[in-house]
């Protein structure tokens, strides 16, 4: 009888020990490649703005659902057994902070991103092909858009040996052309290269009423007045 009890006690102990081991192994974050690709400032800006617009849209929907429920007197937002209200959009403090500040930096007046478009950037990179720039140099030309020769000197090593005077002028021309192409910044409205988040909105688990609401959020997605809402 005693032996039996001991066995019974031993077995789970062994098991749980195993589990802990496995868990600690799998939990550690690992860096597979610290630098797999470089992104231009413009790409980063459009990505962050997309994220921002998406967040606003979701906050807005959540807000409306809540209001409707309140109006109908059926406040079921807090699930039975407690927990987070199903309609609340989680605000990720850190993410919001860093993306807000990064957008501020990337869309400042001294940055070239304000007058770039995806087409113009692609065009610019293509036109730089023939000068034998390195990848990093091309990236910086896109990011900094050097129109003055002195700016190009800073970016490109041994510029004088590598390019003739005419070629330098040509490069400056290409840069100027790429900037002139964009009259205003309308990144938010552009097709996303990140369908994941957009899909999330389509799958939004809601009633028919809400689908209607969803239809008109496209115009208001970037309205600044909505910024206050996530404070609630």
């Amino acid at each position: 009888m005693a032996r039996h009890a001991q066995k019974w006690r031993d077995a789970p102990a062994l098991n749980s020990g195993d589990e802990v081991n496995k868990a600690s192994q799998s939990m550690e974050a690992r860096v597979i490649n610290p630098r797999s690709a470089l992104l231009s400032n413009y790409e980063v800006l459009s990505l962050l703005q997309e994220l921002e617009a998406d967040h606003l849209a979701r906050t807005k929907i959540a807000h409306r659902i809540k209001k409707e429920e309140e109006a109908a007197g059926t406040d079921v937002s807090v699930p039975i057994g407690g927990g987070r209200p199903s309609t609340a959009v989680e605000t990720l403090e850190n993410l919001r902070t860093v993306s807000f500040e990064a957008i501020k930096y990337l869309s400042a007046d001294h940055q070239s991103t304000t007058s770039q478009t995806p087409e113009a950037v692609t065009e610019l990179v293509k036109s730089l092909e023939s000068y034998g720039f390195t990848k990093a140099e091309k990236l910086q030309i896109v990011n900094l858009a050097p129109q003055e020769q002195i700016e190009l000197y800073v970016i490109v090593e041994e510029l004088e040996d590598r390019l003739s005077q005419e070629q330098m002028v040509e490069v400056a021309e290409h840069v100027k052309k790429s900037l002139a192409a964009a009259p205003s910044l309308s990144i938010v409205a552009q097709p996303s290269h990140k369908p994941l988040i957009v899909k999330a909105d389509e799958n939004w688990d809601a009633t028919d009423d809400v689908d209607e609401e969803f239809d008109d959020q496209g115009e208001g997605a970037g309205v600044e007045g909505d910024l206050d809402m996530e404070e609630d």
Binding site: S26, S36, L38, L196
Partner: peptide
Amino acid sequence: MFNLAILKDTVAVHPADFGTPQELA
């Protein structure tokens, strides 16, 4: 300035988020 790092990690999704699409959660 910016680049992409490939990372590997294990994340836990709270049951309250089971309603949202997996990728988003």
